[in-house]
Design a protein around this nucleic acid. Sequence first.
DNA 1: ATAAATTATAATGTATACAAAATAATCAGA
DNA 2: TCTGATTATTTTGTATACATTATAATTTAT
Lengths: 227, 227
Amino acid sequence: MQKIEAKTLHMEVTSRLRGMIRSGELSRGQKIDEKHLSELMGVSRTPVREALRVLHSEGVVDLIPYRGAYVTQPSIEEIRDLFDVMGVLEGTCAKLAALRMAEEDLKKIHTLHRSLERHFLRRDHEAYLETNHYVHLMIQELSGNKVLNDVLNGLRQKVLLYRHRQLYYKDRFEKSMQEHRLILEALQECNPSLAEEVMKKHLSNQCEALVDLYSPEQGEADHQRAA
Amino acid sequence: MQKIEAKTLHMEVTSRLRGMIRSGELSRGQKIDEKHLSELMGVSRTPVREALRVLHSEGVVDLIPYRGAYVTQPSIEEIRDLFDVMGVLEGTCAKLAALRMAEEDLKKIHTLHRSLERHFLRRDHEAYLETNHYVHLMIQELSGNKVLNDVLNGLRQKVLLYRHRQLYYKDRFEKSMQEHRLILEALQECNPSLAEEVMKKHLSNQCEALVDLYSPEQGEADHQRAA
DNA sequence: ATAAATTATAATGTATACAAAATAATCAGA
DNA sequence: TCTGATTATTTTGTATACATTATAATTTAT
């Protein structure tokens, strides 16, 4: 899945750092020590620093001059903002996809959707989330807009930091599955405005679940002063 | 305007590089020589390289491992894609602004708009473009969504590379002014869907003008192979 | 003379060394 | 003991040195 082939060291480091943040090995708000990390990965500080710059511009890492790098810890408001934007953009993707989709594209979506239903039946959260990811990526690609793709992938980096336990929250798993059925329907019917609407709703529901989960565990680390 | 206070050298270099690209001192597709640039700016290669990484993740610079950095030269399709996304997002900004705007916000918009009309009357392209920029920034801010702001600012970096002669094209100057009048009206009426619509149209018209201007001067440099 | 291959040069990527700033630790005074 | 200031240490930022890759220049063979 995240097998971005690394041509240079700093790309490799970037990739591994993403993994560490996503897995929780580096938790939100935590300081990232350059020396420690470079020793851990067996490289010098140079590629580590370059990787941190990359993650910074993706919004995954905060950089404060002469004070270090910290894993971004968005506020609830920022998460809401993030999902609002993603809702608009993924909604646009769905709309465009419904407009442009060919027969064979629909087939592929169908295949992925069946896989999603299978994982849902088995209550396999991990597999469901991965396939869910693929579905969204495919709809993105079907939009045929490269910039849209890039922007969304960037924003998703941040969302993925909080992926963990969404589906365990209340009946989010069932709801998510149901929403995906609606998305598939809209695409099948080639109904752009409906596709946009249900996709947007899917994102906002996901956001609410995440926010509810996120709220309790706020006061962990609070080191970030004026940027 | 672009007075981003530079706390570290690489931020200063980033800022200056942006200026060089925007002014045309570094043209589209041109290779950026690290050594040359570092000597020009009187710094070592380190901050230059960091700046290039930052601009890369903004999409302003292409980086090819072991081959160097090049000023991005988007294809017509990419420009179209870019404006489509910006249209969606700036449209959303306008919609949200129309919803949330207070009396004093409207006053500020009015002030800017009057300034815009003044520059238009005098046919002062530079001043018009600058004020135009401020108007869009203000509407963005009024959306109240920080992520939306950040994403748009990032995308605009790329657009600004091509700002130059838009207004000289056909009757683009008149059209632009007229579109801004419509935007102002929609905001005054607190009509979110109309505001979204006219803003979107404003962006797509701008895109067409830019694309028409861009087309002739394609075959300048074509060095970029598979990334 | 042209084309392929080899060598030489220059550029990028990485590691190390040094400088500047922030954090930690020590010490003096109350 | 606690507070404040000063010093020491650690960490980040920058510069330089070295390694690796790509580009060029040269050589050699046809």
